[in-house]
Design a protein around this nucleic acid. Structure first.
Length: 464
RNA sequence: GACCCUAUGGUCUAGCGGUUAGGACACUGCCCUUUCACGGCGGUAGCUCGGGUUCGAUUCCCGAUAGGGUCGCCA
């Protein structure tokens, strides 16, 4: 039988990076084994449940490219959309729809099942009413959990459970609780493998007992280690970097995020770090999952981001770049397309995050150049003024105004002045871009064109 | 507090009784580039501690310590 695995998030309005990793591992296992990946929305908590909150999850998974075989049906959304909440999942759909033969995949639509199951437990004496709620009669003996990652775990009773091991499965307001619905759905959806965070390991004893009460063999469990903050503390909602959406907003590439997430808690064991999606699917399996928690290393993610950013196909690179400028309030559409492309070509491979791009190359699309104060103090000095004037004259005489002629002219001028090229390069760069670093000076001037370049040098001369 | 999981450089990891303990990120030196980035060649830095088992432990066992998790009418 082909594995049936599921990712079962609850719509809280954001998708935790650890949740995304759990989804990824489930998806990878399904794809590796040729099994089925199921997305189930655990929206039993009506207070927190909303269409927008569901959409945060769906758009997050879509952005990562984690497609599900069974689960909610959604409209296609642009992978570039920044705010998932702006996307309309169900503008026309009052009730979320599902695909798959085990639906619906929203727990809010499955309540009758839960109540029937509770009735069955009640009638068989396996549960009882207590202060208006229904409690499950939990066994008093230790439960052995056969975990595919951790191994056999004998879960003994805690001191509290020694007093009362039973737990509520139906609240006094009639709402079923997580442990119950989670088990019933896994059971009714024929889930074969439950891959989830290690934070569920202790509670698995309850789940196993519930499966047994329903007379069904529990699924295989695989508890994966947690993702911690860089300082080793628990990564909670308010920590920066905890939300998947944040990475989208910062201009990360989904392939970089996916690749990095794979490396947290799983290893291909052959020293490979950068792996394509197909390579990971081929190599991924439960035994290679590690048992200890991993700290999130933003720097390493950034490295991977740079790797993928450098090899981006031109079309996608332009699209993402234009989008990044638009987000920063700069409309590149006001400029001729060849100019925009030429400008962006000088930046490719030189920056990592698209959110950096407006600051890195904004000078191409802005008339007002704001000089970096520290650098201006260093290079806009009196002895450089006549040098820059001489260079301006040399540039002004250039007939083909391109990178090659600019370089020759600059070096020739430097030679005549008896100074190193850098003495001319720095003030010129600052005049043209306002920054001490950026794309190749000669190429950037070529893109800017003779008129603009000379005008900027002229303007800088007034600042000495 | 009880119960559970875990422990290799700063971080992610390879290792599965005998290795000069390997790789990657980060840091750093040099080269390349008269910016930045990329690339190339080097470098600093590691088996948490204490007992066992063994001829021999990073590796196996026990304990301690540390970190994380669970003990809800949250999920």
């Amino acid at each position: 039988m082909k594995p049936r695995v599921r990712f079962a998030p609850s719509p809280t309005g954001y998708l935790h990076i650890g949740g995304a990793r759990t989804a990824l591992f489930n998806w990878l296992y399904a794809r590796h084994t040729g099994g089925t990946f199921i997305l189930r929305i655990e929206d039993t908590d009506a207070a927190r449940n909303s269409q927008e909150a569901v959409e945060v999850i769906l758009s997050g998974l879509r952005w990562l490219g984690l497609d599900w075989d069974e689960g909610p049906i959604v409209e296609q959304a642009s992978s570039l959309c920044d705010s998932p909440t702006q996307q309309k999942l169900t503008g026309k759909m009052p009730v979320p729809l599902s695909k798959g033969n085990f639906g619906p995949y929203f727990q809010s639509q499955r309540k009758a099942n839960y109540l029937a199951r509770v009735e069955a437990l009640l009638s068989r004496g396996l549960a009882y009413e207590h202060e208006g709620a229904v409690k499950f009669k939990m066994q008093r003996e230790p439960v052995t959990i056969h975990d595919l990652v951790v191994g056999d775990v004998v879960r003994k009773l805690t001191d509290r459970e020694e007093v009362d091991p039973d737990f509520v499965i139906l609240r006094s307001d009639g709402q079923p609780v997580f442990h119950l619905v989670n088990v019933i759905d896994d059971l009714e959806m024929d889930i074969t493998h439950v891959i989830r965070g290690e934070d569920h390991l202790s509670n698995t004893a309850k789940h196993i007992a519930l499966f047994q009460a329903f007379g069904v063999k529990p699924p295989h469990y695989a508890h994966i280690p947690l993702i911690l903050n860089g300082d080793g503390s628990k990564m909670s909602k308010r920590d920066t970097g905890a939300s998947l959406t944040g990475y989208l907003d910062e201009g990360f590439l989904p392939e970089a995020v996916i690749n990095y997430l794979c490396l947290l808690g799983w290893s291909p064991k052959d020293n490979r770090e950068k792996l394509s999606r197909a390579e990971v699917i081929e190599r991924f399996d439960l035994p290679q999952i590690l048992r200890h928690n991993a700290r999130f290393d933003y720097e390493k993610l950034l490295w991977l981001q740079g790797e993928y950013a450098r090899e981006l196909a031109d079309d996608r690179f332009y699209e993402l770049a234009v989008h990044a400028f638009a987000k920063a309030g700069m409309d590149t559409n006001k400029f001729p397309l060849p100019y925009v492309k030429a400008a962006l070509d000088t930046c490719k491979g030189k920056f990592k995050l698209f959110s950096e791009l407006p600051a890195y190359a904004g000078f191409y699309f802005r008339d007002e150049i704001i000089y970096n104060a520290d650098d201006a103090k260093k290079v806009f000095i009196p002895e450089n003024k006549p040098r820059l004037e001489k260079l301006r004259d040399a540039f002004a005489a250039l007939t083909p105004f391109n990178a090659a002629t600019l370089e020759t002219a600059l070096k020739e001028t430097a030679k005549q002045l008896g100074v190193k090229a850098g003495v001319l390069i720095h003030p010129t760069r600052l005049a043209a871009t306002g920054n001490p670093n950026g794309p190749s000076l000669y190429h950037l001037l070529e893109v800017l064109g003779k008129e603009k370049s000379l005008a900027r040098i002229e303007k800088a001369l007034a600042n000495f």
